[in-house]
Amino acid sequence: MKYKFDFGALAEYWPQFVDGALLTLEMTVLSTVSGLVVGTLVAIGRRSENKLLSRLCGAYVETVRNTPFLIQLFFIYFGLASAGLRLPVVVASVIAMVFNVAAYTAEIVRAGMDATPRGQLEAADSLGMSLPQIYWHIILRPALERVYPALTGQYILMMLSTSVTSQISAEELTGIANNIQSNTFRSFETFIVVAGIYLLLTLILKAGFWGLGLALFTRRRRLGTSL
């Protein structure tokens, strides 16, 4: 085998790599925040006394968790287009990502909520707290703290799955890579570089989430205990 690696051909494309990485990060942040909000609402709906609402939320979570993201993306992007609604690819991608990650978030957050000790609920009740108060102070915030590691792990996986949106030609990192490799014919090198960038993004996100955890959950740090 005689193959000469030539990373030099890629050097002039570095601004594009940066643009792609930035778009990947933007899409990730946007869908993390929206996914957390929607997912938490779904988790609350799933725990609701209302059978219909609970069933509906359960069906949504199961549907999303048991079908591939690529199919969900195609369904939303091409489906809406065939119904006459042409969304820009990035918008369609973010909608699909929120739709996807909210279901995983709901499942994780629900597990955290279900782990609330009964005694705490009874104590809150006897203090005369209202249902929204109980939800916010006793159930939701400790639940988020409890499942924080699982949640951030899920969001890092989601950052990686933004690569799938290149299939509807979103110009994020993988989409950029596809363009560059068809210009330079340096396919293998391009994807090695892109793999390296993704790895870097993963590390940045991990560090960011760790720092955010320290800043958000001061009680754990003060007391040195886990929940």
Binding site: L160, S163, V164, T174, A177, F191, I192, V194, A195, Y198
Partner: peptide, 23 residues
């Protein structure tokens, strides 16, 4: 950690084009 930090799609492309250059 490296494998888990790279999207499957990128692994797939790298393998596809990587095996290609070995002829």
């Amino acid at each position: 950690q490296i494998v888990q930090g790279i999207p499957l799609l990128v692994i797939l492309f790298a393998v596809y084009f990587g095996l290609g250059i070995f002829g």
